Computed example of a mutant assay.
Amino acid sequence: MKSRFYAYNVGIPLVCAAVVFLMFDMTRIDIAFSNLLFDPLTQTFPIDKIHFFEKLTHKWARIIPNWTAEIALIGAMLSLVWPLVNPHKRPRLGAFLERNKVAPVLRFTANHRRDFFFVVVAFALCTGVIHFLKSHTSVYCPIETTLYGGKMPHIEWYSNFQLFHEAGSGRCWPGGHASGGFTMLALYFVARRYQWRFSSAILWGSLLLGLIYGTTRVLQGWHYMSHTFWAGIFVWLSCLLTALAFYGRARLELPVVNKRTQKVFSAQPEVLL
């Protein structure tokens, strides 16, 4: 079971990384695909000029991961309130909160404190990893390079990687917008913790969301397609590492429970101390 768990959750992403590196970074497929979207007469990516497309796919689309992160942060903060209320010592306060329907919310957040904090930390770690890679590779977006009417040179991430200091002002690799969609993978690990039968739907939905986010930026000339794939790989590994720290491998590798035998959130949710 242990070897199978790591084969799926670490082995597959590493194989994907090797495929992306050899198929995209070692060839000109990225450039060939972006060439199809570029208008050499106007020296622009036509879709980048559609303001509604920009708002719909770049501005408004951020609502999904942003609201998820905000809800998780609020839940994490509220989870600390119920132990402070301590209705056994403060029965009047407890009764007041019960009458106003606040107590169930506080109990829920306290019971799932570990999950709320996991999502907060996973989102933060994913964001941090992506920003680190962006600043330490200094890759410029296609639309910024001389290939597509810009002023900056086209460089590959591996030729400009600096481990201990920033490599320059470029901030295009991996895909930041795509990573926002992929961070929803954190919810998949929460679902796996509880053996929820819809966990696979969350997995594929999060992957699809990240691909959509990334592809829209490719269409606008602000990323190459491989940037999206790299973002997904790094976000997955970041979420996996965080999930192992919060839940442990033994919990995450439990089989999904079907509808007939599924428990309601594992009877007694753990509380993060």
Rank of each mutant, 00 (worst) to 15 (best):
M1G: 12
R4T: 09
Y8R: 13
V10K: 05
I12Y: 07
I12S: 01
V15H: 00
C16I: 04
C16H: 01
V19T: 02
F21T: 04
M23Y: 15
F24L: 05
T27N: 10
R28E: 15
S34H: 12
L37E: 14
T44R: 15
D48T: 06
I50E: 11
H51M: 14
K59W: 10
R62F: 04
N66A: 13
W67A: 15
A69S: 10
E70M: 14
A72V: 12
I74P: 01
G75F: 02
A76C: 07
M77V: 15
L80N: 03
L84K: 15
V85T: 05
P87I: 11
R90T: 07
G94T: 09
G94I: 08
A95S: 14
A95Y: 13
L97V: 14
R99N: 11
R99L: 10
N100F: 10
V102I: 15
V102K: 08
A103Y: 11
A103P: 00
P104E: 07
V105F: 08
N111Y: 12
F116C: 06
F116S: 09
V119N: 04
C126N: 04
G128A: 07
G128W: 06
H131T: 14
L133D: 01
L133G: 01
S138N: 03
S138Q: 07
Y140C: 02
E144D: 12
E144V: 00
G149Y: 04
G150P: 04
W157V: 14
S159A: 12
L163Y: 08
F164A: 08
E166V: 07
E166K: 11
A167N: 08
G168F: 05
S169R: 13
W173M: 15
P174L: 11
G176R: 10
G180I: 03
L187C: 14
Y188L: 11
Q195L: 13
S199G: 13
A201K: 15
G205S: 08
L207H: 14
L209D: 01
G214K: 02
G214P: 06
T216Q: 08
T216S: 10
R217Y: 01
Q220W: 01
G221L: 07
H227L: 03
H227Y: 06
F229L: 12
G232W: 01
G232L: 01
I233L: 03
F234M: 12
L241W: 09
L244V: 11
Y247R: 04
R249D: 04
L252T: 02
E253S: 06
V257T: 07
K259W: 14
R260F: 09
R260V: 05
Q262D: 09
S266C: 05
A267K: 11
Q268W: 06
